[in-house]
Computed example of a mutant assay.
Amino acid sequence: MSSLFDPKHVRRAFSRAASSYRAAAVLQQEVAKRLLESLDYLEDRQPQVVLDVGSGPAHATAAMKKRWPKAQVIALDLALPMLAEAKKQAGWWRPFSRICADARALPLADNSVDVIYSNLCLQWVEDLPAVFAGFRRVLKPNGLLVCSTFAHDTLVELRQAFAQADDTAHVSHFVQIAQFGDALMMAGFRDPVLDRDMFTLTYDDLPTLMRELKAIGATNAMHNRRHTLTGRSRFAAARDAYEPMRRADGKLPSSWEVVYAHAWAPAPGAPIREQGHDVASVPLSAIPIRRKTTE
């Protein structure tokens, strides 16, 4: 059975976007800012080791190094060119480590990390329970995980428009918020809290949106994507299908559903839950979910 995503394509897309990412990733930077606020849950605790998974050019990594100057702060990313950009953020006055690695196989020792921060990386991972199990493995008991991902209603307009062009997936798959919460519980994290933002970005036309997606590396990474050019006729069909969605201000809307989560690694000796067993310590309905809409 083939996997949903193509990790090699994800690596290539973000490697190519390394130089353009900072200027184009306005939404990503806003989400990072909001996610960094979650670190206030640590109150006065001073972590020794902090890991930024999917760091990109490492703006959040640098912010955490500034927040905790005595901590070992690590930027980890799948794309080596992103880490080359990250080096510019480190500087001699606030150095942090850089590791090129996959979020699905963290090259860190068990119980070695106090805080894991991951902003808008996990939407490129198919097996969330396995990734969260890896996060739990490297976290110290009672360590903190703060993370975010794009969820199901992201780019819903684009998905609907291209569905009028052909039957091939042109937009990556994004998880339901329930799947995200379930995956946290399956890995044994405790006291999870989820937040949800719905952002609406606007564009003059479809080509402008597509160029921005390429600039941030957010291209279709599904294995069953079309491996040839979309073609003028298909693109025109998608463009025509998008036009009826144009707003009163003349702009095309683009929805981005963002889910944030913070949760704690369990105390020492807590069993790891496995799929096929009683994995949910509480029903998903008991996890606090705060919903907001932002334009």
Rank of each mutant, 00 (worst) to 15 (best):
H152P: 10
S148Y: 02
Y117A: 07
E126Y: 09
C147E: 02
V171L: 04
F150P: 01
D110S: 15
F135M: 09
D167T: 15
R159M: 02
C121I: 07
V131S: 10
A165G: 10
R136A: 11
F150D: 00
R136G: 06
L120R: 11
C147Y: 02
L106D: 08
Q123C: 09
N111P: 03
A109S: 13
D102F: 03
A163Y: 07
I177D: 13
L120T: 04
A161L: 00
K140Y: 08
S112R: 02
D153R: 14
A105P: 06
D110G: 13
R137A: 06
P129Q: 07
A163D: 03
R159Y: 07
A178Y: 13
N142S: 15
A133H: 11
D153G: 09
A105I: 04
A133R: 13
D167P: 04
D102N: 14
D102Y: 04
L155Y: 02
Q160V: 01
E157Y: 01
R137H: 12
N111C: 14
L145K: 02
I116T: 05
T154G: 07
F162P: 13
L122S: 09
V138S: 04
L144P: 07
F162E: 05
A109F: 07
I177R: 13
D114Q: 05
L139C: 03
D102V: 09
H173G: 00
D114P: 00
A161D: 04
P107M: 11
N111W: 11
N142Q: 15
A163H: 08
V138L: 01
Q160I: 05
L128A: 08
Q160A: 15
S172V: 06
S112Q: 08
K140R: 14
V113N: 03
R136W: 06
D114R: 06
L145R: 00
P129S: 06
H170P: 02
F150K: 06
R159C: 03
R136E: 10
F174Q: 06
